[in-house]
Computed example of a mutant assay.
Amino acid sequence: MNARAWQAQSLLLGYPDPVLLERLDLLTQAASTLETAAGAPLLRFIEHARNTPPTQLAADYVATFDQRKRCCLYLTYYAYGDTRNRGMALLKLKQTYAADGLILGDDELSDHLAVVLEYAAAMPARGLAVLNDHRAGLELLRLALHDMRSPWADVLESVSATLPPLRSMSEVAKLAAQGPPEEKVGTYR
C-alpha cells in the first residue's frame, strides 16, 4: 500500500504542469484505495489542484518551494545545508538508485522529495530507509507547510502517515533552531 501512496505523493510534489493536471483523475482513484491517514490528505490536495487555475497553482508552487528555504524539497539540504558534505550525500543517493536500476537524468537531483518517493515506490524497503534517514527534515518541511497553510501540507501529511512515528521531536527542534549547517571553509578552530 505504501508504494502506491509514495508514487502518488511523488507526482503531486512535482511541478504542477499540464501532464500532472491530466493525471488528477488517476491520482484520485489511487488515493481512494489508500488507508484514510494517507489517502484523505491526498484527496484534499487533489481537490485543491482541480479547483485552482493552473497558472495560480504553478505560481503557488514556485512561491512555496522555490522561494522559501524552510520549504525546501531537497532533503539533504536540511542535514547538510549547501556544504561539500551535501554533495557527497547526493552522490551516495545517486549511487544507491543506480544500484537498483534507477538512473537519474542530469536535470534531477537525487534528494528531491519527489525523486526519493518515486524510488521508495519502486524499492519500498530501501526507499523507506532513505525516507527515515531524512525524517527530521521531512517533519520540519511538514510543519513549515502547515504554518504557512500551504495546500501541499496535505501531501506531506500523507507522507508522514506512511512513515514510522518520530521517536523524538528534539532533532526536529534542533534543526529548526539552528538551521542547516554552513560551510566552514577557511575557518580555523
Rank of each mutant, 00 (worst) to 15 (best):
K69Y: 00
K69C: 02
R70D: 15
L75T: 05
L75M: 12
L75C: 03
Y77H: 15
Y77S: 09
Y78M: 01
G81F: 04
D82N: 12
T83P: 06
G87S: 07
L90P: 01
L90Y: 07
K92E: 12
K94N: 09
K94Y: 08
Q95G: 00
Y97T: 01
A98D: 08
D100F: 04
L102V: 13
D107S: 14
L109Y: 01
D111F: 04
D111L: 05
H112V: 07
V115D: 10
L117F: 10
Y119P: 08
Y119M: 06
Y119Q: 10
Y119S: 09
A120P: 02
A121R: 04
A122G: 07
M123C: 09
P124S: 05
R126T: 14
R126W: 00
G127Q: 08
G127N: 06
V130G: 02
L131G: 05
R135A: 15
R135M: 11
G137H: 10
L138I: 15
E139P: 00
L140A: 15
L141S: 12
A144I: 01
H146G: 01
M148D: 10
R149D: 14
A153H: 02
L156Y: 11
E157F: 00
S160Q: 11
T162L: 01
L166M: 09
L166E: 06
S168C: 11
S168Y: 04
M169D: 10
S170Q: 15
E171H: 04
A173F: 00
A173Q: 07
A173R: 09
K174S: 13
L175K: 07
A177S: 12
A177C: 02
Q178E: 14
